[in-house]
């Protein structure tokens, strides 16, 4: 039998289980958010479901203590790896004062934490992409060796900010990983109505950078691609565009009904390829995860989410008068 992929990549049992745990945690938080939304307890959810394998594979290849993350709204798997806790995310879901992302000012999914090197984001898509280039440019000026990973959807890859930022990073050979999570739909519009080229990664060559498209359901393949991109960045070889092919398993958000634009069969087919299912199988087949370990992992995550939900539900909103705070430095 040939060497297994994780062995070739130098990933060990504990790391692999850690990856699965983060993927599962993101999924289960997301599922809880939907329940809370449908129960009328939180106003809004925007999902990571279907993207966890790509997200966790990518960030496992980074150094959270020195690299910067400029995520988009689906990246729960990424921010968990960079240090955001389940409780933090629940506080954001409930818009509580303790939400470290914004103190309840922004909708859920608008991640940010200076302590964790997660750069604050907004809702107009792709605006974070030039910021990643700015962080990388600052690093070059200061002779630092970190890389910046910024993520976005395939629809967002049409925004001027993507093209302007990619070109800028290409010209100045900056260590930016442009990470496109292609989930086939920009809300309702399918990818063949979004881009004229076959793949988003085809756009890389225009900007003098490496581009590749990989299976977003395979966290090990994503890890490898991002590890190579990070190495290139640290070595001064410039930016990379990594496109992962995933599928959005939920509607766009809690306010969307996807039945008007895609078939149930299509969604059911995608569920069979869900990275959480296939990666669990990969680990179990190679005796890297026992049934007991799997059950314990699920139970522990569930308990953490239950506790976080309760804590967030009981936590206070920010005082109304604080609406006026922090417009300018004071």
């Amino acid at each position: 039998m040939s060497e297994a992929k994780h062995e070739r990549l130098g990933l060990e049992r504990q790391q692999l289980q850690g990856m699965l745990q983060t993927m599962l945690t993101a999924r289960k938080i997301d599922e809880r958010m939907w329940l809370l939304n449908r129960a009328g307890k939180i106003p809004f959810v925007i999902s990571c479901q279907g993207h966890e394998a790509a997200q966790v594979g990518a960030v496992t290849a980074l150094r959270p203590d020195e690299d910067y993350l400029l995520p988009y709204y689906r990246d729960m798997g990424m921010v968990l790896h960079f240090g955001m806790t389940v409780k933090d995310l629940m506080m954001a879901g409930f818009a509580r004062a303790e939400d470290p992302n914004s103190g309840g000012r922004q909708m859920p999914g608008h991640f940010g934490s200076k302590k964790h090197r997660i750069v604050t984001g907004s809702s107009p898509v792709t605006t974070q992409v030039p910021h990643a280039v700015g962080f990388a440019m600052a690093g070059k000026i200061k002779k630092e060796n970190f890389v910046c990973l910024t993520s976005f959807g395939e629809g967002s890859s049409n925004q001027g900010d993507f093209h302007e930022a990619a070109n800028f990073a290409g010209v100045h050979r900056l260590p930016v990983i442009f990470f496109c999570e292609n989930n086939h739909y920009a809300i309702s519009v399918p990818v063949d109505r979004q881009i004229a080229c076959e793949r988003v990664s085809d756009r890389a060559s225009s900007y003098g950078m490496h581009g590749e498209t990989i299976d977003g359901n395979d966290p090990l393949a994503v890890y490898e691609a991002v590890k190579n991109a990070a190495d290139r960045g640290r070595d001064g070889a410039g930016p990379s565009l990594i496109e992962t092919m995933s599928y959005r398993l939920t509607p766009h958000s809690s306010d969307d009904d996807d039945r008007s634009y895609r078939s149930r069969d299509e969604v059911d087919d995608a569920r069979k390829k869900d990275g959480i299912v296939t990666f669990t199988e990969y680990l179990k087949t190679r005796e890297l995860l026992t049934d007991t370990e799997e059950k314990d992992m699920h139970d522990a995550i569930q308990q953490t989410i239950d506790e976080a939900t309760e804590a967030a539900e009981e936590a206070a909103y920010a005082e109304a008068e604080t609406t006026l705070d922090h417009v300018y430095h004071s």
Binding site: Y68, V119, T120, T127, V129, P130, H131, A132, V133, G134, F135, A136, M137, A138, G139, I141, K142, D161, E164, A165, F168
Partner: peptide, 11 residues
């Protein structure tokens, strides 16, 4: 946008 990123970094 690049300027904003560099400013957030601390420059």
């Amino acid at each position: 946008g690049v300027g904003i990123g560099a400013a957030m970094y601390g420059l």
